[in-house]
Design a protein around this nucleic acid. Structure first.
Lengths: 229, 229
DNA sequence: ATGAGATCCGGACCGAGGTCCGTTTAACGT
DNA sequence: ACGTTAAACGGACCTCGGTCCGGATCTCAT
């Protein structure tokens, strides 16, 4: 249990009361954000609760896409500015809504019983982890999608389809007995432009290492490379 | 070369002149979209060219994020409605801008010389494909990012970081000699909520198959399962 | 050439996310 | 109690993506 302090998704920390941050995406990068609620003022805490409750009501009654910042503000009898100050942006609000189930899940794989929690061999824990995530996704999936703008379109873009089909075709030749349709998505994920940007420009990982990682991934997936691993 | 007709990314096809489509994301799902320019009217073609040129100018001069629909319209001396009718939405416009290099790339891996094109063994082609994509991304990466709303934030969301760190830790135990940092991204990709949504709800793939694919992926990546593949 | 009709154009309009700043109010020391 | 101050509030305001429809324009058959 190494990083027990990193757990919280950052609803109350993005627009932290310390300094008026103008670029919320920059700070939640390195901050440790330990205490969940950094001692909000009484009215602030009250409004925060009101807002979350109002947002939850809206989701329940009219679906995730009805969660408009103005609608939430109105439902909570609060000014629009308050919503943004507290949650930063729409994604922040939705993320805060997801926070509860998120934490429960984190607790399960960080400290719960095996095979999800510690105690089982790592490969078994990996298997369990993925299956747990898959099952969890069936619950609050629309909320998670709504929290990520443009999530629907990502996998229907024609260009992407061509690339994935190509990978799938090659996979079918290399490992005919596998579920190449689904396997190809894993490979595609490693080539996602957003990921490449994040790794190469934000993390400073050199191209050579990315290429090496790709080749290694291909070898592992297809069973090439070492004859026996 | 199975699907030579699928190649074009769909700039002129989304708001095709045939029928006034109100939901552009729905149609480019099953359509075959063969002819690139379905015989636009003269003025329409002229404006389309103008708009692409204007958008290109804006990207070159002021970066991808300056490509506002209104700005493009103004730069091209054209009404805003025209931009939307032609390209559907902002993503469509940016995609159309990327179309040229996209097609070049597609031609390279569909019909070019090995190892990228046909002729080499599939595993080798896969390796080459990934490396080519990685290199290609360094060129028009900002454009590709701009074409996908919210692409920057996707990998800095705190919740995601925790999940990925967990995978990475388990991977480190299972395959200590691998580049677990990067490998974990591939596994994370397979659990992306947007992907799950696409596969399970849009493609109708049952949960059991997704779970099986995940377990298989873990086994392949970690070298578990069969002792020798 | 010309008229009919489909197609396209343009910009007013709308909704929603996000910002700003003058005003209000909770917290705390005296 | 009361004054001070930092923080929170609220809603007007801005920008931008996306829609709509009356009017201009192109195409084609005659």
């Amino acid at each position: 249990m190494l990083y027990a302090g990193f757990m919280s998704t950052a609803p109350p920390s993005s627009p932290t009361p310390q300094e008026p941050v103008d670029h919320p995406e920059l700070l939640q990068l390195g901050t440790t954000l330990e205490g969940d609620e950094p001692c909000l003022r009484a009215d602030a805490a009250r409004n925060r609760a009101r807002l979350l409750e109002a947002a939850g009501r809206l989701v329940a009654e009219r679906g995730a896409e009805a969660v408009t910042m103005e609608a939430v503000a109105a439902e909570a009898c609060v000014g629009k500015g308050t919503v943004f100050r507290r949650f930063g942006d729409r994604t922040g609000l939705l993320t805060a809504l997801l926070d509860h189930s998120e934490k429960k899940f984190q607790a399960a794989f960080l400290g719960g019983p095996p095979p999800l929690g510690p105690g089982a061999p790592p490969v078994e824990r990996l298997r369990a982890f993925g299956c747990a995530m898959l099952r969890r996704s069936t619950d609050d999936l629309d909320l998670q999608l709504a929290a990520e703008p443009g999530a629907n379109r990502r996998f229907v873009a024609p260009a992407r389809r061509v690339l994935r089909h190509h990978i799938e075709m090659l996979l079918r030749q290399a490992v005919p007995d596998a579920d190449c349709d689904l396997l190809s998505h894993a490979l595609m994920g490693q080539l996602d432009p957003a990921l490449i940007h994040h790794l190469s420009r934000q993390c400073g990982i050199p191209l050579a290492r990315l290429e090496a990682a790709w080749v290694d991934l291909v070898d592992r997936v297809t069973g090439a490379g070492a004859t026996c691993r």
